[in-house]
């Protein structure tokens, strides 16, 4: 996978831990993930599964006291004309250094769930968007303002000139998320990470924002890492999907494969838990048995075994399943498909 010409971000056996007073939380473990240029990758999982921390690692904005224990995050940097190529390991950078700052916001940008709290309440929207432009582009304030205005217009915010001088509280939720997208895209990043960008919005607004993102993705040719717990949203937008559970990717593959041919019992259950219109009435919505274990009581062996219906006794509860290829670009971490373990 590593020498794929189209690879943009390549994560190899990433492990992120949070040393706390109560014990060490292994938030992300053994994660391998490749995002290609222009690809929309969906990362799905319940809260606490490590999907957010993975994204934060790519930005190196993992909150204290979290840190990358080991692993690589390779970024395949390319100059705008495509002539110069280099590979940088983000995991090795100082999260407070200048090297990472020239990459943050420029090569990779991120948008978040809460569009209101994403903006400082005391600064105008224009000020906050222009800041991103001034940091990474060689322009003066006037030009930056012009770019900001164009971006606002591009995300279809009416009356952009006036909007620039307004404060976040004067924007509606949907408008704020548009402004957030505008801010993230001002420097035309190669990768946009979107963490539940539509969850806090009304359903109609959700659809508009998704459409907008898709449109901009095609226009700018950027990759999107779409983080959500909502498989329905993923189905609309993602080409490939990674399913995470308790810090590990348990299944990864093209969207079609994941939705029509799920292999891991967890993925299987997740899909069953999606409500569908047109199902025979009387059929119950299936919930996944049990609850996600607390951060300090991670089960040994396969982390999913206590909730798994297809558990193999003395195997799943004792050993870590390894990664098994089950199809084209489709891999799963489960003993049902191979006896490989991840222990050496």
């Amino acid at each position: 996978m590593a020498n794929d010409e189209r690879a943009l971000i390549e994560i190899n056996s990433l492990k992120v831990i949070f040393p706390l007073d109560e014990g060490t939380v292994r938030a992300v473990e053994d994660v391998d993930l490749v995002i290609k240029r222009g690809q929309v990758m969906g990362v799905v999982g319940e809260s606490g599964c490590g999907k957010t921390v993975t994204a934060q690692s790519i930005m190196r904005i993992v909150p204290d006291p979290g840190r990358i224990e080991h692993g690589e995050i390779l970024f395949h940097r390319r100059s705008p004309d495509g002539t110069k190529k280099e590979i940088i390991d983000i995991a090795k950078m100082d999260p407070r250094g200048s090297e990472i700052r020239s990459y943050r916001g420029k090569e990779v940008a991120m948008i978040f769930q809460e569009p209101l709290s994403s903006f400082s309440p005391l600064h105008t929207i224009g000020n906050q968007i222009m800041e991103a432009i001034l940091l990474h582009q060689d322009v003066n304030k006037k030009q930056a303002r012009e770019i900001a205005k164009e971006m606002l217009a591009r995300v279809r915010i009416p009356n952009p000139t006036r909007r620039l001088d307004q404060y976040p509280h004067e924007f509606s939720g949907g408008m704020r998320q548009r402004a957030m997208i505008a801010m993230a895209l001002t420097c035309k990043p190669a990768l946009l990470m979107a963490e539940e960008p539509t969850t806090a919005l009304d359903v109609t607004i959700q659809a508009q924002i998704l459409d907008l993102m898709k449109e901009l993705q095609e226009e700018f040719g950027m990759a999107i890492m779409f983080i959500t717990h909502n498989l329905g949203v993923i189905a609309q937008i993602a080409e490939a999907v990674a399913i995470m559970y308790l810090g590990k990717i348990v299944e990864i593959g093209p969207s079609r494969e994941i939705f029509h041919n799920p292999q891991h019992p967890y993925t299987f259950n997740l899909l069953k838990a999606i409500p569908r219109i047109g199902k025979t009435t009387g059929q119950h919505l299936v919930a996944i048995e049990g609850a996600v274990p607390g951060p300090f009581e991670r089960p040994s062996g396969c982390t999913f075994y206590p909730r798994c219906e297809r558990i193999i006794p003395n195997r799943c509860d004792m050993h870590n399943p390894g990664v098994t290829r089950v199809g084209e670009g489709h891999a799963v971490r489960c003993f049902l498909y191979s006896e490989d373990t991840d222990e050496d």
Binding site: S13, E29, D30, E297, R298, S300, G301, M318, N320, D342, E343, D344
Partner: peptide
Amino acid sequence: MADLGGLSGTGTASQPGLRGLQT
């Protein structure tokens, strides 16, 4: 990886007692 295996190994050994206590 080696230390990881070690970690989960000890986890398995002390699991039953620990689990009971935790619940």
